[in-house]
């Protein structure tokens, strides 16, 4: 196992995290995704500052897209809140699997509040991949540096997308919206080192359209529970067999 990267201070670790964010595949993806969301917010008549605030407090692209669409189309608040909450279920297992990596002997809950709020696909993927190589006492600072950089990028490019929206041809606007699923797919596959992760990915891709086709409600939730549990069960069975 390689020697963990040590940093002299928390601010050095914070900067280390910021540098990781800038060189991450999610960095250009974040730009593209938030240009797309900025364009969406413009189309639905929301203010650019509203978008910036939503990026900071919600910090989840799928939830923001649902919210913007709901406000723009005047959907019912209850319906929109349920859709947002369903799209956000994934954050729960992400936080549960991330925090043990961040928690050291002297870690207080209040030190984990920011990383918990910052938890999103991009930050979770990079953290899971790089935190094990960071000295435990510097992981929170590293993680915050990573997250703050991602969030500032998202806010900035939300503004850019908002003002770009007027002139963008449809096919390029479509490409911007396509950037999110394409990059999520590749980075999930890239991070799936274990059979369990690969299985969960494939099962999720297959189960969702199946559940939508069968018109079973809460399809995203069931995709996660059924697909995830099956993948986990296979992992357990294989572990028991060896």
């Amino acid at each position: 196992m390689p020697v963990p990267a040590t940093y002299d201070s928390s601010s050095a670790a914070f900067l280390g995290g910021a540098r990781r964010a800038v060189s991450s595949v999610f960095f250009p993806v974040m730009m593209g995704t938030y240009i797309g969301i900025g364009a969406l917010a413009h189309d639905f008549g929301l203010a650019p500052w509203w978008l910036a605030l939503s990026t900071i407090v919600v910090w989840a692209a799928p939830a923001q897209v649902i919210l913007i669409t709901a406000i723009g189309l005047g959907s019912s608040m209850i319906e929109a809140a349920i859709a947002v909450s369903l799209s956000a279920i994934r954050l729960f297992p992400m936080v549960v699997s991330l925090l043990p990596l961040l928690r050291g002997p002297g870690t207080r809950v209040r030190h984990l509040l920011l990383p918990a709020h910052f938890t999103a696909v991009s930050m979770w993927m990079e953290s899971l991949r790089h935190l094990p190589g960071i000295a435990p006492e510097r992981r929170i600072a590293y993680c915050n540096g990573l997250s703050v950089t991602f969030m500032s990028t998202a806010v900035t490019f939300g503004f850019i997308g908002f003002y770009l929206a007027r002139g963008l041809p449809t096919v390029f606007a479509a490409a911007l919206l396509f950037l999110t699923p394409m990059s999520f797919l590749i980075s999930t596959a890239n991070n799936a080192r274990m059979l369990m992760d690969r299985l969960a990915l494939v099962l999720g891709l297959v189960l969702l359209p199946l559940l939508v086709y069968l018109e079973i409600g809460l399809d995203l939730m069931w995709t996660g529970i059924i697909g995830g549990t099956l993948a986990y069960a296979v992992h357990r069975l294989r572990a028991a067999a060896t």
Partner: peptide
Amino acid sequence: WSRAVATAILAGVIAKLILFSSGA
């Protein structure tokens, strides 16, 4: 288990965005 569920939900979001797209 949580990691497996998070991965499957993410895969579901990916499938949803590609197969049941909205807007442009």
